[in-house]
């Protein structure tokens, strides 16, 4: 008799567990779906703020950037992704000053470690969420971050 009670209790317990399992799967069934339909949701989806997609150098409306061409980012970069080409300018006081000529960033060799942005004393470069990097040739991954004819932002304008 004792055995029989155990047997029936066992079946009842099993049934209860099966029902609770099916309840959980049903909850999952009616939950909103998390699949992202990529080409359709292009531009509609917001990504995490700290997702590192691509390095950019923000410019203001006067085509000015904050990069002083100090080269710290280039030195910090672990695999030579950043190349800074400078030219020397002489200002009105007669002092020689380095100015940014071209800021070349090779997306193909970047490991997205963010040592450049964290070490930049001016906050001149930052990350965006852009992730559609596919191109047909490797050269297209080499990008110039400063725009044509851009100059250094002066202090009083800031």
């Amino acid at each position: 008799m004792n055995e029989f009670i155990k047997y029936t209790v066992n079946i009842a317990k099993g049934l209860h567990m099966l029902c609770s399992g099916m309840y959980i799967t049903m909850l999952n069934m009616i939950r909103p779906k998390i699949t992202e339909q990529y080409p359709e949701n292009r531009g509609k989806k917001t990504y995490f703020e700290n997702f590192r997609g691509e390095l950019v150098m923000p410019h203001n409306e006067n085509n000015e950037h904050k990069c002083t061409a100090c080269g710290i980012c280039m030195m910090n970069c672990p695999n030579g992704t950043i190349q800074i080409v400078t030219s020397v300018l002489t200002d009105e006081t007669g002092k020689n000053k380095k100015a940014l000529d071209r800021y070349v960033y090779d997306l193909g060799s970047c490991i997205f470690c963010a040592l450049c942005t964290s070490s930049c004393p001016q906050g001149a470069i930052q990350w965006t969420n852009a992730f559609e990097h596919a191109v047909y040739t490797k050269d297209k991954l080499k990008k110039q971050l400063n725009r044509e004819g851009s100059t250094l932002m002066t202090k009083n304008r800031q």
């Binding site: 799967t25 999952n28 069934m29 939950r31 779906k33 998390i34 699949t35 339909q37």
Partner: peptide, 8 residues
């Protein structure tokens, strides 16, 4: 099946 796994 997809619905049960929160897919489309």
């Amino acid at each position: 099946c997809a619905a049960f796994q929160c897919r489309i």
